[in-house]
C-alpha cells in the first residue's frame, strides 16, 4: 500500500495561526500539502474551482476557522454541507471560540468535529498531530473521484 499523501485546505485569516498550523503539520508523520485561503468567500471560490482556482486540488480535509472576513465559518460550513459535490469532505472547525452557541451551530450544520484552539503551543501541536493521526491515518476518507 503506497503511503497516502493528503491535501488540507486551511481557511484562516490570522497569519500567526497559519504559521503555527503549518509548523505543527510539518512536525507530523504524514506527508501532506496545504492550501491556505484567508476568508470565507475565497474558501468557496477555491472549493467550487471558480475563476482563479481552476487548478485547485480538491482537499481531503478542511480546517475551518469561524471568525473570518467577508463570510464567516458557519456560512462556509453551511455551503459545503448543502452542496452535493462538496458535502463528503470532512470539515473540522478549528477556532478560538469555546462558545456553546458556536459549537451547537457547527454540529447542526454537520461539521465533522469541533476543536477549540489550545493556547499553549505544545498542546496546539499535539492537537494538530492528533487531527492528522485520526483523520489521515485512522479514518478512511472517501476516495477521490477525479
Amino acid at each position: 500500500m503506497k503511503p497516502k499523501e493528503i491535501h488540507i485546505l486551511l481557511v484562516e485569516d490570522n497569519e500567526g495561526d497559519i504559521v503555527l498550523t503549518r509548523e505543527a503539520l510539518d512536525e507530523g508523520r504524514i506527508k501532506n500539502s496545504i492550501s491556505v485561503v484567508r476568508d470565507g468567500w475565497e474558501a468557496i471560490q477555491y472549493l467550487e474551482k471558480n475563476e482563479g482556482y481552476e487548478d485547485a486540488i480538491e482537499p481531503d480535509l478542511v480546517l475551518l476557522d469561524i471568525n473570518l472576513p467577508k463570510m464567516n465559518g458557519h456560512k462556509v460550513l453551511q455551503h459545503i454541507k448543502t452542496h452535493d459535490e462538496l458535502k463528503h469532505i470532512p470539515v473540522i472547525m478549528l477556532t478560538t471560540s469555546s462558545d456553546d452557541v458556536d459549537i451547537i451551530k457547527s454540529y447542526k450544520n454537520h461539521s465533522n468535529c469541533y476543536i477549540t484552539k489550545p493556547v499553549d503551543i505544545n498542546s496546539f501541536i499535539d492537537v494538530i498531530s492528533t487531527i492528522e493521526d485520526f483523520w489521515i491515518s485512522i479514518v478512511q476518507l472517501p476516495p477521490k473521484t477525479n
Binding site: 490570522n14 500567526g16 495561526d17 503555527l20 509548523e23 478560538t96 471560540s97 484552539k117 493556547v119 499553549d120 503551543i121 505544545n122 496546539f124
Partner: peptide
C-alpha cells in the same frame, strides 16, 4: 475579552515556539 484572546494567544504561542 473575546478579542483580546486572539493577540494574546499569538504572544503565548510564538513565545512557546521560540523556546521550543
Amino acid at each position: 475579552s473575546h478579542d483580546l484572546k486572539e493577540p494574546l494567544r499569538m504572544v503565548k504561542s510564538f513565545m512557546g515556539l521560540l523556546q521550543k
